[in-house]
Design a protein around this nucleic acid. Sequence first.
DNA 1: TCAAGTGTTATAGTTCTTATAGAACAGTTG
DNA 2: CAACTGTTCTATAAGAACTATAACACTTGA
Lengths: 120, 120
Amino acid sequence: MLVRIDPTSDVPIFDQVAGSIRADMVAGGIRPGDKLAPARELAAALRVNLHTVLRAYQLLRDEGLVDMRRGRGAVATPAAGGLSQLHSEIVALSQKALALGMSPDSLAALVRDAVRGESG
Amino acid sequence: MLVRIDPTSDVPIFDQVAGSIRADMVAGGIRPGDKLAPARELAAALRVNLHTVLRAYQLLRDEGLVDMRRGRGAVATPAAGGLSQLHSEIVALSQKALALGMSPDSLAALVRDAVRGESG
DNA sequence: TCAAGTGTTATAGTTCTTATAGAACAGTTG
DNA sequence: CAACTGTTCTATAAGAACTATAACACTTGA
């Protein structure tokens, strides 16, 4: 599990950590049942506070992508396997959006609102 | 032009305003050349500060979706028309994601990172 | 010309978020 | 039991978000 962060980015660190792990799930590097790195260990590797990493993990938990229990660690759920099924469609959409000159944030916000509109 | 915001949401107000206008562009309710509501007027209607609305407008301007000039107001650009071309694909993707049990934020973050990965 | 309307800029203050730090707690594993 | 895990708590500091007020500069239409 390789996690990269960009300290100069305006995206919050906990968001970058969660995003990096999601991308790993899409690529198949993390599969259902796989254990994530212990929060303390990852925090040390990234030279970041424990709470920052835990916030990223809890964000993924709220999204249903990981299961967390003390003593056991954070484990990827079956939902994490579903991410890879969206890979080709996400790439196709993002390429089309890129051709139209849309910004990443603009498209992301559109998708977010679209899903919200259908579910709730 | 109808703008809705949810004060209890954790999404910043300026982001909600921008998102509401984007969604209106996707739906075709706002077309290239159309004028947006004056910032002061919209701020009063939403019972929000002028600067909050202006920040939303400036966000859309940075995304190339609106053109702004003092005295004239904010006008939708040709790029705004392109949004409607993405409508069906966004709906298809969001429905598939919904079937997989993905959260709106999770999918949005994935799409955002995908576009970032391709552009720069 | 000029008054009204528009976005722009400036300053200031309050509240919320982010990130850090240290400590203690409570399950799990070997 | 000892080591390891996430969880909770308190606290601090920096930055972002939101509000408030005021003035400025460009555009439009009477």
